[in-house]
Amino acid sequence: MKTSNRLESAIKKLYTAYYSNQLFPECCKQCAVGNILDKTDGWQHLSDYHGALQLNYIGRVHQNLGRKFNGYSPLELLQIEAVFLTACGYQLPLHHKNNKPKIPNDNDVLFDGLIAVIGFLCELDGVSNTMDYTKCFELENDSPKYELELSF
Rank of each mutant, 00 (worst) to 15 (best):
N107Q: 11
I58Y: 14
Q63I: 01
L53H: 04
H50A: 06
R67K: 15
N64M: 12
A87P: 02
T86I: 03
L53D: 11
G89P: 06
P93M: 05
L94P: 04
E81P: 08
N70E: 09
V83T: 09
F69G: 03
A82D: 00
Y90K: 01
K100M: 12
A87W: 00
Q91M: 09
N70T: 00
S73R: 03
H96M: 04
Q54C: 06
D106T: 03
K100V: 04
D108G: 09
Q54D: 15
H62N: 12
L85G: 04
C88W: 01
V83H: 02
P104I: 02
L46H: 10
V61E: 13
T40P: 07
L94I: 13
G59V: 00
S47E: 00
G59W: 01
E76G: 07
S73F: 00
K97N: 12
L92H: 07
W43F: 09
Y57C: 06
E81A: 07
S73V: 01
T86W: 01
S73W: 00
I103D: 15
L77V: 08
P101C: 05
N70F: 03
Y72W: 12
L92D: 03
F69P: 02
A52D: 14
L65V: 08
K39S: 11
N99W: 04
R60K: 15
R60A: 07
I103W: 10
H95P: 09
I58L: 13
L92C: 10
Q54K: 15
F84M: 02
H95M: 05
W43K: 09
F69N: 05
L78N: 04
H96Y: 13
D41Q: 13
T86A: 10
G66W: 07
Q79E: 10
Y49H: 10
Y49S: 09
S47P: 05
L46K: 10
F69Q: 04
R60T: 11
K102S: 15
R67T: 12
H62T: 01
N64L: 10
C88V: 00
G59P: 06
R67C: 15
H96T: 06
D106L: 00
Q44W: 10
T86N: 07
Q54G: 06
G42M: 13
N98M: 08
K39D: 08
H62C: 10
N64F: 14
Y49V: 01
L53F: 01
C88E: 06
H95G: 11
G51P: 07
D106Q: 07
N64Y: 14
Y57D: 15
I80F: 06
Q54V: 07
C88R: 01
V83C: 05
H96A: 09
L65H: 13
H50K: 08
W43C: 06
H96N: 10
F84K: 00
N105L: 01
Q44D: 13
K39H: 12
L77S: 06
I103T: 14
E81G: 08
L94R: 09
Q44R: 14
G42S: 15
N70D: 08
K39M: 11
Q63D: 07
G42A: 13
G59F: 04
Q91R: 12
Q63W: 03
R67S: 15
S47G: 08
L53V: 02
L53M: 04
V61I: 15
S47T: 15
H50F: 07
D106W: 07
V61H: 09
Q44T: 14
W43Y: 11
Q63G: 11
F69T: 04
K102Q: 13
T40K: 14
I80G: 02
P101L: 01
